[in-house]
């Protein structure tokens, strides 16, 4: 019982990280209609930004976090501007290949700068563990869950209540009609990339705090899993990415604890395949009506 509760909590924590990353995939897909495969590598850059700020520059943790968020946001917006914007009218395949190219570029730049050996993330949060009877919850897990919850509520309010949020929903439904309403599609896409990348930076901080070791290819696996989570929840749907991320994390931890650490990924992806066979648009995805 205690083991189950602890597993569920660590699953929720891991799931929150996936969800934060998945939000970036799903928002960019919903609005720019492209898969940004370089998104996972932004996490890696964010983690290195923290390491450099804290270990090399000796800055306090809060400043390091702000720097990491700023670096990722700027990087995301720059990638969009330099690599994706010129391809706005190109076929989706061209954009996809470009995104994969950007992903390798980021990994290799990191390899050049930081070398191939893994670096350890400095300990940034000194939060005491919480003991509830026999169950112990780590401080980092609590912080991850709390911050993720706040971010998700804020993002939902932003999308539903603000004008920029309305503009984003309008662009995701119909770019041309949105332009005719005076909404700049380019500006909206820039804001989307900025938000997605900032969320990736937050994810990278919690990822570093949980998994400690960072190397240039660190971003790929959480990136792929978060992408899977986004598809699982219904790509393009914001609540879908949240739900998909959390379910994926819980599923992964459950199979690691009760079945096999080795098999956990196979099990997680197996469940994904099953869900997509039954519901191809994902859990909360909308079935796309073909325009006639």
């Amino acid at each position: 019982m205690i083991q189950l509760v602890e597993t569920l909590i660590s699953g929720l924590t891991l799931g929150s990280i996936y969800a934060l990353i998945a939000l970036g995939y799903t928002m960019v897909y919903g609005i720019a209609k492209m898969l940004n495969f370089a998104h996972g590598d932004i996490i890696m850059i964010g983690a290195y930004a923290v390491i450099v700020s804290v270990a090399t520059l000796r800055l306090p943790a809060v400043v390091a976090i702000l720097i990491s968020v700023a670096v990722c946001t700027l990087l995301g917006v720059t990638i969009e501007f330099l690599a994706y914007r010129p391809l706005r009218q190109s076929p989706p395949l061209t954009v996809l290949i470009t995104a994969i190219g950007v992903s390798y570029l980021l990994q290799n730049v990191a390899l050049l700068i930081f070398g191939s050996e893994q670096k350890s993330t400095p300990r940034m949060f000194q939060i005491p563990d919480l003991k509830l009877g026999a169950v112990t919850i780590s401080g980092v897990a609590l912080l991850t869950l709390g911050v993720t919850a706040v971010i998700m509520i804020a993002l939902t309010l932003f999308i539903n209540k603000t004008r920029m949020g309305k503009a984003m929903r309008a662009v995701s439904e119909d770019k041309e009609a949105a332009e005719l309403m005076g909404i700049s599609v380019n500006k909206t896409i820039t804001v989307t990339f900025a938000i997605g990348s900032a969320l990736a930076a937050v994810a990278s901080i919690f990822f570093g705090a949980t998994y400690v070791y960072i190397k240039p290819t660190t971003g790929s696996m959480p990136g792929i899993k978060a992408f899977t989570a986004a598809v699982f929840g219904g790509i393009g749907s914001v609540p879908g990415a949240m739900l998909g991320g959390i379910l994926l994390g819980v599923l992964e931890q459950l199979s690691k604890t009760y079945i096999s650490t080795l098999w956990s990924d196979a099990i997680v992806f197996g469940v994904l395949v099953l869900v997509l066979v039954v519901k191809p648009s994902g859990l909360l995805g909308k079935t796309v009506r073909e325009k006639v």
Binding site: T162, M164, M181, K286
Partner: peptide
């Protein structure tokens, strides 16, 4: 070509985007 998942009111409000600029900070 309406924004069919949005409410009738929100569709019109998207159109009103034109009239006044809004800073991102204010929105947040």
């Amino acid at each position: 070509r309406l924004f069919s998942n949005m409410s009738v009111l929100d569709n019109v409000k998207v159109g009103l985007h034109n009239n006044t600029p809004e800073s991102l900070l204010a929105a947040v």
